[in-house]
């Protein structure tokens, strides 16, 4: 028998394995959702031929990506070139650890869950930067430069809006934050403080490089940006991590602003997933609707609007909390 002392460790390991499966499966679901939503936005059926209504299309895509030859550009830095996709993918799994999917459904119960997630999510930038730099490609380099500038910039309003919620709840523990909000929408922080939610939502688009802020890979300018030189699963890793990152930030959003796993009827993980996928749907919907912003505009939105607004919101929240409490 396992020493009860190691229960948390065992739980973590099991959870990590489960999360890897979840991330992989979830990527398949999201790819399918993305392509179907794109299809319907564009008045076409989307994937239709592989399986019923194209259900097996993501599997076929995955098979194709894995079967592809891995090309390494001769002028690249081989070690860093292949370290980058791994570095981009692996930390994402860790991000799922402190997330409470349900009341007891979590990998690691830490009282600094928010900080953990924010800290690990920063690693993704390093991966993009390495990928662009190591591939020794000018488009890659420009994409990497964009990725760094963009992530650093958007991290600030993101942090501030998270901080606002932390102040409101008085805790950095994701579980505690969830519980403090009630089951009903008017008890959620997203409704109580919609500005923070709005800022957070815009910032995660910038953080995860999703359209209209997908500049690091802005295809019409930089062909594919930082992953121009990657083929097969090298690209697949970035792809996976992009989707996983989207899921993580949406999870955090649903915990911080939408009451996490609590719902009006019968709280549980289904509420959590419902909220996450609703947010994901909006993100995908936006991608297929808007043109891409320009890089200086992107930074202007951040420095001129989001950051000052987030700061004002923080100050306002503090004042309101003081007066109320």
């Amino acid at each position: 028998m396992i020493n009860p002392e190691y229960y948390p460790l065992v739980r973590m390991v099991i959870f990590l394995v489960a999360m890897m499966a979840f991330v992989g499966l979830n990527a398949l679901v999201l790819v399918y959702a993305e392509r179907k939503i794109a299809g319907h936005v564009q008045r076409r059926p989307g994937p239709f031929h592989v399986g019923w209504h194209g259900l097996l299309q993501p599997l076929a895509d995955a098979g194709k990506l894995m079967a592809k030859q891995l090309l390494t550009p001769w002028s690249s830095d081989k070690l860093l070139f292949w370290a980058a996709p791994l570095l981009s993918f692996l930390p994402v799994i860790l991000l799922f650890l402190p997330i409470p999917f349900g009341e007891t459904l979590y990998g690691l119960n830490v009282n600094l869950g928010v900080v953990l997630i924010l800290a690990f999510s920063g690693l993704n930038v390093l991966a993009l930067c390495l990928a662009g730099w190591a591939s020794n490609n000018k488009y890659g380099l420009l994409g990497a430069a964009r990725a760094v500038a963009q992530s650093v910039a958007y991290e600030i309003p993101l942090l501030i809006s998270v901080l606002t919620v932390a102040l409101m709840s008085g805790s950095l523990d994701l579980h505690a934050i969830t519980v403090q909000q009630g089951a009903w929408p008017w008890q959620w922080y997203g409704v109580l403080n919609p500005l923070a939610f709005f800022i957070y939502f815009i910032s995660i688009l910038g953080e995860t490089n999703r359209a209209p802020f997908d500049l690091p890979e802005g295809e019409s300018e930089l062909t594919a940006g930082f992953h121009t030189e990657y083929s097969g699963m090298g690209f697949g890793m970035f792809f996976l991590s992009e989707y996983a990152n989207m899921v993580v930030v949406c999870c955090v959003a649903s915990i911080l602003f939408l009451g996490g796993y609590q719902g009006p009827i019968e709280s549980g993980w289904w509420w959590f997933l419902l909220k996450v996928y609703a947010l994901l749907f909006i993100i995908i919907w936006m991608r297929w609707t808007f043109p891409r912003v320009r890089f200086d505009q992107l930074l202007n939105i951040n420095w001129r609007w989001l950051t000052p607004l987030a700061l004002l919101n923080l100050v306002g929240t503090v004042i309101v909390l003081r007066l109320a409490g």
């Binding site: 794109a38 936005v41 564009q42 008045r43 076409r44 359209a211 209209p212 997908d214 802005g218 295809e219 019409s220 297929w288 609707t289 808007f290 043109p291 891409r292």
Partner: peptide
């Protein structure tokens, strides 16, 4: 042109 600007959907409307 809109594809150049990063909006993928309009071209399919136009082609329709």
């Amino acid at each position: 042109y809109l594809l150049d600007l990063g909006a993928f959907t309009p071209i399919l409307y136009a082609f329709e």
